[in-house]
Amino acid sequence: MSYEVVLQNKYDLRELVESITLTDSLDQIAYQASIAIKVPADFPGIEPGHEIRISGVPFGASNRVPLLHPGVVWDCGSTAGQTKHMNLTVYDRTIYLAKSEDECLFAKGGTASQRLKQHAANWSIKLASVPDTKTKLNKAVYRAQTIYSMIMADLKETVKSGGDMFIPRMTSAGLELFKIGGNKTVWRLEGIEEATQSRTLEETVTRVKVLGSSADENAPSKVLAIASGQTAEYGVLQRIVQDENVKTADAAKKLAESMLTGKGLSYSVSCIDLNTVRAGDQVNFNGLNLIVTSVSHQLGDPGHMTLELATYEDVKRRYFLEH
């Protein structure tokens, strides 16, 4: 296999690898690899916690680059017969943010970027590119919960206040904040093996009413804003929103307008592998620019990948605006 798998920055396992699958999703922070290897008699031991990296040559390039690095072996299991085989589950090191809990208090006025930098400092995580998310956030009191859930709460509040969509992503240079659809190279999907399309009104929202809190339980809540969209085309499908962080009419109007959505549109595509595509990237499929919500790479020569794709607005609604 042309893909390089190096254990403890010392042992090249390339000749032992039987298969590698990389999976990424907007629902998870850590990039995951499943590696199957055959185990010879002189094989070095592998234990959870060991460092590992996976590298390969991107499509159209000639030099090998890290695909999952820094990685950590999380699970390993083996079966013994005439030949011994081992299966490894590997994550990039953002897995520690998903598995670790803490309590945090953040004052009003900070941004999601500033808070991410604080988390990284607390957990000794190297930072790469962290663009300014700009939106000033409300005071936050996070009781015992995962660091990842705190980060995503800040990023969701940013979007609800009219800001851009970002996700945390580990790279070989360090932890970065990646803007959804912000990849410089937008790949056109080719070598299509199978493609399915789904269209639905199931989660369509054509009217949004944002309510404030009411001191009198017998009185109706104050209406802060109402926004209407494609009511003539799809009918009135109204969503009621109450968010304690939304206190002004202007903020309520931005939130209401951002939650309007037309019919849901999603695709599932299987095609020739582009091994650097990650969840959150923009790709071109049949002339449409869509966002990757999940991807599974079966690395090989050639490899194959399966992607779930959605429109930019659907990604915003499904991953950032829903409670």
Rank of each mutant, 00 (worst) to 15 (best):
Q118K: 15
A112I: 06
C104Q: 14
W123D: 09
L155F: 05
D102P: 00
S113R: 14
S113K: 14
Q118N: 15
P131Y: 03
A128I: 06
L137W: 06
A120C: 11
S124M: 07
H119L: 12
V159T: 06
G109E: 12
K108H: 12
D154A: 03
A112D: 03
G110L: 14
G109W: 13
V159K: 05
L155D: 07
Y96S: 07
K139V: 04
Y142C: 01
Q145V: 03
A144R: 14
W123Y: 13
K126N: 10
D164L: 14
M152H: 10
G109Q: 08
M150D: 14
G110E: 14
M165K: 01
K99L: 00
T135M: 12
T146D: 10
V130D: 00
Q114P: 03
Q114C: 05
K126P: 03
G162C: 08
D154T: 03
I151M: 13
G109A: 12
T158D: 10
P131S: 02
N122C: 06
Y96K: 07
S161N: 14
T133A: 08
Q114L: 12
D164Q: 14
R143H: 08
M165L: 06
K117A: 13
L127E: 04
G109R: 11
A121P: 01
A107R: 14
I125G: 01
R115A: 15
Q145C: 07
K108A: 14
S100I: 00
H119T: 09
E103I: 07
A128W: 10
Q145N: 05
C104E: 15
E101C: 02
Q114H: 09
G163L: 12
T146G: 10
K156G: 02
S149W: 05
Q118W: 15
V159M: 04
A153K: 10
K134G: 02
I125V: 13
M150Y: 08
I125A: 03
S161G: 12
I147T: 10
L155K: 02
T135Y: 05
G110D: 09
P131A: 07
T158S: 11
H119C: 10
E103P: 00
M152F: 12
V130E: 01
E157C: 06
G163R: 11
W123S: 04
V130I: 09
I147N: 04
L97G: 00
K156I: 04
E101P: 00
G163C: 14
L116R: 06
A128D: 14
L97M: 04
K139E: 11
A128K: 10
T135D: 02
A140G: 00
L155A: 04
I151D: 01
K156L: 06
M165N: 05
N122W: 01
S129E: 13
S124H: 03
E101S: 10
M165G: 02
Y142R: 04
R115M: 13
E157Q: 15
I147C: 01
D102Y: 03
V141R: 04
L97T: 03
A107H: 11
A120N: 05
S124P: 03
T111I: 09
K136N: 11
K160C: 12
L116D: 11
R115K: 15
D132Q: 00
A144S: 09
S113P: 09
K134I: 05
K160G: 15
D164R: 09
S113D: 12
S161V: 04
E101G: 06
V159I: 08
F106I: 00
M165F: 02
C104I: 09
T146S: 15
A153D: 14
A120S: 10
G162Q: 10
S129K: 10
